[in-house]
Nucleic acid binder design. Structure first.
Lengths: 110, 110
DNA sequence: CAGCTGTATAGCAGGTTAGTTATATGGCTA
DNA sequence: TAGCCATATAACTAACCTGCTATACAGCTG
């Protein structure tokens, strides 16, 4: 059965573009490419598996904790980032599959 | 001399994402893939060479002429669309090279 | 289970975006 | 060149975004 790319992966381009239309959020995505390299060592939560600890992102962004929290929510709601809670901390990592789906669709459809 | 992709093509990702973060503007870009197919026949200005006549875009968008004008300005300022004035009318077409540059950079860097 | 700590939500202020109507601009055309 | 017609700009409003502080929530941990 034939489907358009949009149906196939059901990406909401407008939501994703809104999430990406922010220097702060682009910066977060960039940092999350290499959590271990961009953030201090963390005691719990493997940087490679679970991503970077929330608090490190807050500090590096240089905004208040609630502001950072909302940026991370925008990214997770758009499906670009995945949150993991563990022992009272929250870790964020890139959703590489979704990002690859997005760039693939853009290369074909934009 | 080595350059990052961002320097090489000097794309302002945030500006482009902001331009794309609008259902209306995504719609315009979609229509402009096939001006002859998506708009009425125009007397002057080859649809394929110069793009679609401004007035047709205004009508099809269903917003006021100034609102459409600003959407088109956002797209042209981001470099995604090219405007051509001719005999009193203005035509808009996709900047396929810029769009290809963008999707290429996203595939590599996002 | 009581308290503490990390994170999310509420509520507010300031700036930006997107729509409107009214008007200015600019270049054909007669 | 006088007028007209297509488009852009101005001015205003409503909605949205992003930052803040204060507070609620949730789940470890002693």
């Amino acid at each position: 059965m034939a489907m358009s790319l949009a149906e196939e992966v059901s990406l909401d381009l407008e939501v994703m573009f809104k999430a990406l239309a922010s220097e702060r959020r682009l910066q977060i995505l960039e940092w999350l490419k290499d959590p271990a390299g961009n953030f201090p060592p963390q005691e719990h939560g493997d940087p490679h598996e679970h991503g970077a600890c929330n608090q490190f992102i807050v500090e590096k962004l240089g905004v208040s904790q609630p502001a950072a929290s909302r940026h991370l929510k925008v990214l997770t709601d758009a499906g670009l980032v995945i949150a993991t809670s563990r022992k009272g901390w929250t870790y964020y990592r890139r959703n590489e599959e979704a990002i690859a789906d997005l760039t693939r669709q853009l290369a074909n459809d934009l």
